[in-house]
Amino acid sequence: MQTDPSPMRSAPSLWSRVTAVTDYFAFPLRTSHYVELVNPLWARHSLQARVEKVWDETKDARTLTLRPGVNWRGHRAGQHARLGVPIGGMHYTRTYTISSAPERDDRCITITVKAIAGGRMSHHLVRNVKPGDYLPLGLPQGDFYLPDAQPVKPLFITAGSGITPAISMLRGLIAQERLPDTAHIHYAPHEFDVIFGAELRAMAATHSRYKLNLQLTREIGVESSEARHFSAAQLEALCPDWREREVYACGPQSLLEALERHWQGAGLSRRLHVERFRAAYAGVPADAVGGKVSFGKSRIVAQGDHLTPLLRVAEDAGMNPPHGCRMGICHTCNTRLLGGCVRDLRTGKLLNEVGAIVQTCICAAAGDCEIDL
């Protein structure tokens, strides 16, 4: 077990008493702001993490090893945290699953990021972040984790970077030496696209209770490729006892929707636990239109279409509005409608009442509108 180099952890009550006095002299700042100049990880008014190591998992996925500051609290395997990055003078925040097990003994965590098309932050994290960088970090959140009363026979169904919560759970179970009878179906285009591929195969070879089925959807011909995607017949062949298992699924929206239809049809929806990387959108009418988006406080006007979230419209216009999860969960992006109409992309519902709360990350223009940003 490595010792924590921070002197703040050794005597928190003493430190609190000292800062209660020194904060009077630091006003209008706090003692913590000056401590941050010495070591950002010691600051108590904010939480940052230092990048200790970067590791390329695949050609477009990278694992970052982070050392959180003193305000960090332990996570449960499968939870996520918000990570901030300054890019081009603007501050962006995204939510990433913690891919390491809580049982690490060096007080570090890892996140594993896959660069996605058009993703500002994912490309920056995969290509540009280096050891020694400091990144703003949020506390762990989320309820996608194994219950304390552990399911006897879990089934993980994952695809692409959806492997991250599952690998955290698997690493944790192995570290605790209580890995149960576990089945895992993972989808990836090719062998070289399998994030943690070598580790997963080593787990399967070392632990007889872990059964891994890799489905490489583009490795072979087009006809056979279709058969490699999820289907009822495939599930029956790969995991005949799926009805008896608690299922933990994470991956692209198309996969999660197929799983939800299948388990609902079997009357077993209560056994399916899903983690999404983006909000599920409702269908938008064919005649839907966007409009002019006016940002009241900033006095900026931009054009928004009927599908692009207002948060992205604001960022593309050079603004830096508050945001967090970008999928309608954390409500960090909440603002008020000052006029016009917007559409909630998750439900298709129109909001046109002045003063209504608008979540900019999941609402788009439905005609001209003005919001309080």
Results as ranks from 00 to 15, higher is better:
Leu139Phe: 12
Gly138Asp: 04
Leu146Phe: 13
Leu146Trp: 11
Val152Arg: 14
Leu146Tyr: 12
Phe144Val: 01
Gln150Met: 15
Gln141Glu: 14
Val152Trp: 15
Gln141Phe: 12
Thr164Met: 02
Ala159Glu: 03
Pro165Gly: 03
Thr164Gly: 02
Leu155Val: 01
Phe156Ile: 00
Gly142Met: 06
Pro165Cys: 01
Thr164Leu: 01
Pro147His: 10
Ala159Met: 03
Ala159Asn: 04
Leu170Ser: 07
Asp143Lys: 12
Asp143Ser: 12
Phe156Cys: 00
Pro154Ser: 02
Gln141Cys: 13
Met169Ser: 06
Pro140Gln: 10
Gly162Tyr: 05
Leu155Pro: 07
Pro154Tyr: 11
Ser168Met: 02
Ala166Ile: 03
Gly142Ile: 07
Leu155Ser: 03
Pro154Met: 01
Gly162Val: 04
Ser168Tyr: 01
Gln141Ser: 14
Gly162His: 04
Pro140Tyr: 08
Leu155Thr: 02
Pro154Phe: 10
Lys153Glu: 11
Ile163Ala: 12
Asp148Arg: 13
Ala149Gly: 14
Ile167Gln: 06
Ala166Cys: 03
Asp143Leu: 12
Met169Phe: 09
Gly142Ala: 07
Gly142Arg: 10
Ala166Leu: 02
Pro147Asp: 10
Leu155Asn: 02
Leu170Gln: 07
Gly162Phe: 03
Pro147Thr: 10
Leu170Trp: 13
Gln141Asn: 13
Leu170Tyr: 13
Tyr145Pro: 01
Pro154Val: 02
Ile163Leu: 11
Ile157Asp: 03
Gln150Asn: 13
Gln150His: 15
Phe156Tyr: 08
Ile157Arg: 03
Pro140Trp: 09
Thr164Asn: 01
Gln150Thr: 14
Ala149Lys: 14
Ile167Ala: 07
Thr164Cys: 00
Asp148Pro: 11
Ser161Asp: 07
Gln141Val: 13
Pro151Leu: 09
Met169Asn: 08
Asp143Glu: 13
Lys153Ala: 11
Gln150Glu: 14
Tyr145Phe: 11
Pro165Leu: 00
Val152Ser: 15
Asp143Pro: 05
Phe156Pro: 00
Leu139Gly: 09
Asp148Tyr: 15
Arg171Ala: 04
Ala159Ser: 06
Leu146His: 08
Ile163Arg: 11
Gln150Ile: 14
Leu146Lys: 05
Thr164Ile: 00
Pro151Ala: 09
Val152Asp: 15
Ser168Gly: 03
Ile163Asn: 09
Pro147Asn: 08
Phe156Lys: 00
Gly142Trp: 05
Ser161Cys: 12
Gly142Phe: 05
Pro140Gly: 09
